[in-house]
Computed example of a mutant assay.
Amino acid sequence: MPERPSRPPLEFLYPGQHDSINERIGFDIVAVHGLGSNVDWSWVWKGHNKQVHWLKDPDMLPAAVPNARIMAYSYESRWHIDAPKTHLGLLGEELARTLHGVRAKELDRPILFIAHSLGGLVVMHSLLYADRTDDLKYLPLKTIGFVALGTPFRGTRMQSLAKIVSRLLSFLGSNDKVIDDLGLDNESLTEKVHEFCQLRNKLQIPSWCFIEQLESDYGEKAGVPGLFKGIVVEEASAHIPGWGRTGLNTDHFYLNKFSGPNDGSFMAISREISLMYAGIHADTEPSRMRRKIGTSTPLCRMG
């Protein structure tokens, strides 16, 4: 099989890497896509003869947080065909090392993560790895926010279906290691989430979960609309007790795609991002209360 063209693991979406506005950057935003997705289209809404990339459209996230440097993390999350032999722990380590390399001269700059689906678990593994690695310990300390869009913190019922598909496609180079821990109430995932909650609570990292409220149509993706529909990540998995939460009137595949600045889902998500950044500058009582949401470790025991 021909070698895939290489690309930088972190792509600068706004401002450009050499734009003069870089001098006014106050914090970094890193977007991490989900399972089987691609950095080129994961954050892009398509429809009505237009495409909207909300992470770099000047009327969307850059307008909501104009002093942010917005980057998208590019990693291979394919699992069904020609899939890399990787797993969640390794993906997390690679994210932490990549951020360290890009931010070598900006170690004190605050960082905020936006993650869709599996991407939230990659961020979780990344911060846990950084916390136990001497030269990376500053990363969780500088994390000022974590926005999780349909992240399966308790796994998903769909994992069993994905495992079957992976086995059927083994002759095409599938890899089910990356989805091993995604079974509902998987013991390994439960322990990792609990460990992450302890770290998050200790550092009081503001975190917000966004939850899909509409079923996803898998049949439509296969060319047979309505054949199979369902909620990919149930609320009980997408939300950790004690963390902030918002339900969005959309399905799993559109939790990370928005039609414009007046899209209700975008408005809800950008509001939380703005408040997270504002929280590091405002030592007001409401700000302190927002930062303390979910600081009780027992709440992180899910199930």
Rank of each mutant, 00 (worst) to 15 (best):
K142I: 01
R200D: 02
P58C: 05
N262Y: 15
M60I: 07
E195R: 14
D19Q: 11
Q159F: 04
A238L: 01
D57R: 06
V32L: 10
F146P: 00
F258A: 05
A68D: 08
L182M: 15
G101S: 06
H53T: 04
D181R: 11
R103M: 13
E285R: 09
S259H: 13
R132P: 00
E235Q: 10
N175Y: 11
V224G: 02
I164N: 01
N201R: 13
A278R: 14
K229G: 00
L127D: 12
R245F: 01
E191C: 05
W208R: 13
L214E: 05
S77A: 14
D40K: 03
G260V: 06
G119R: 12
H252D: 03
A63T: 04
C197I: 04
M124L: 13
F196N: 04
M267L: 14
G16F: 00
D217C: 09
Y138N: 06
H100E: 09
A115M: 04
M158N: 11
L95N: 00
F171N: 08
I111W: 07
T297K: 08
V165I: 15
H87W: 11
I21F: 08
L13T: 00
I29C: 07
H116M: 10
I21M: 08
W41Y: 07
P66G: 08
P261W: 09
K257E: 12
Y254M: 15
R69N: 01
S188N: 12
L91S: 13
I164C: 07
S270E: 12
L35G: 09
H116E: 07
G101T: 02
I211H: 05
P225H: 07
W45S: 02
F27T: 00
L248N: 05
P206Q: 09
Q213L: 11
H194V: 08
V233A: 09
K105A: 09
R290G: 01
G34H: 03
L203H: 14
R154Q: 08
N262L: 14
N249I: 04
D82H: 08
M60V: 05
W208C: 11
L90F: 04
L107D: 01
E234T: 08
D251I: 01
